[in-house]
């Protein structure tokens, strides 16, 4: 255990520190382990109290889960909506960021102020009228309605404007001399240079969409259009006591995002840390 740090003496303090850390990691990870264990425990034995070593593990809960809800569809929905929202926010945000950072026009600061003002309005204020708006446009219970409130985010515009302002202007000017248009400067010069901020916006937008619950709960009725949080809560309502099925659903919704996390851990952590640094 201490091979990695041979120059350090093994002190009582250090042993206690590692013990504390191992306990902490165990507490953080145990709920995940327990979720998996419960999902493979035969339904009848759950009431006998929990056991770490499952006798006769079974995949019945997963069978029930996939028979009750269109789970594949729901997982794909969640990914598709999250990725569409990310793509839209990257495009709309970086373009608006370019306009605010590089194009001078009358009323620019007023318009930017109006963008920032939309950040201050919490979703709860919007939910009722947005729902009514979707109803009036006959768009409720559609993919579009899921996506509508997250097509553009002023937060993304703000972060990307900051990033574009940090790109030296000479680079644009060199392109102008070569006869490039704004669209060319934007795509060929600016976008490649603001990748770290694009990554931050990607993570924030993805997690916001992946976690989103209140809006889908309000606007979606059909099981085929559900996202994972909504599907799980519907399952929970239906099977209040079938914990093996509910935990199987939880496993199905944790695994894809955990895979994404393991693959992109460094970017995710760096992207989130970036938001807290002034």
């Amino acid at each position: 255990m201490f091979r990695g740090a041979p120059h350090r003496r093994i002190t009582v303090r250090r042993v206690l520190l590692y013990l504390a850390l191992v306990t902490c990691a165990a507490v953080m990870l145990f709920p995940f382990l327990w979720t998996v264990i419960t999902s493979i425990t035969p339904e009848g034995t759950l009431a006998n109290g929990p056991t770490l070593l499952v006798k006769d593990p079974t995949l019945n809960a997963y069978r029930t889960l996939f028979a009750t809800l269109p789970m594949w569809r729901i997982v794909i929905n969640s990914f598709a909506i999250a990725m569409a929202s990310v793509a839209l926010q990257l495009i709309t945000g970086s373009m608006a960021g370019y306009a605010f950072a590089r194009l001078s026009f009358r009323g620019r600061s007023v318009v930017f102020g109006a963008y920032l003002a939309t950040l201050m309005v919490p979703l709860q204020v919007l939910v009722v009228p947005l729902f009514i708006e979707m109803k009036l446009l006959s768009l409720q219970d559609t993919y579009f309605s899921l996506l509508a409130p997250s097509m553009a985010s002023a937060l993304g515009v703000f972060l990307l404007k900051q990033a574009i302002e940090a790109v030296p202007r000479e680079l644009d000017e060199a392109a102008v001399i070569d006869g490039a248009s704004h669209l060319r400067i934007f795509t060929k010069v600016i976008v490649p240079l603001i990748k770290p901020s694009l990554a931050t916006v990607t993570i924030l937008a993805f997690m916001a969409s992946w976690n989103s619950f209140l809006w889908p709960l309000v606007v979606i009725r059909s099981p085929e259009l559900m996202t994972l949080p909504l599907g799980l809560s519907a399952l929970h309502g239906e099977y209040t006591t079938a914990w093996d099925v509910v935990m199987a659903g939880s496993v199905v919704s944790i695994v894809p995002i955990a895979v994404v996390f393991v693959l992109a851990q460094r970017h995710i952590v760096a992207g989130l840390a970036h938001t807290g640094i002034k």
């Binding site: 990691a25 919704s253 944790i254 995002i257």
Partner: peptide, 16 residues
């Protein structure tokens, strides 16, 4: 290990 729950959605956290 400490960060893993952050990426888990609220609904899953609540159910677990």
């Amino acid at each position: 290990a400490v960060f893993l729950p952050v990426i888990t959605s609220w609904v899953v956290v609540a159910l677990v």
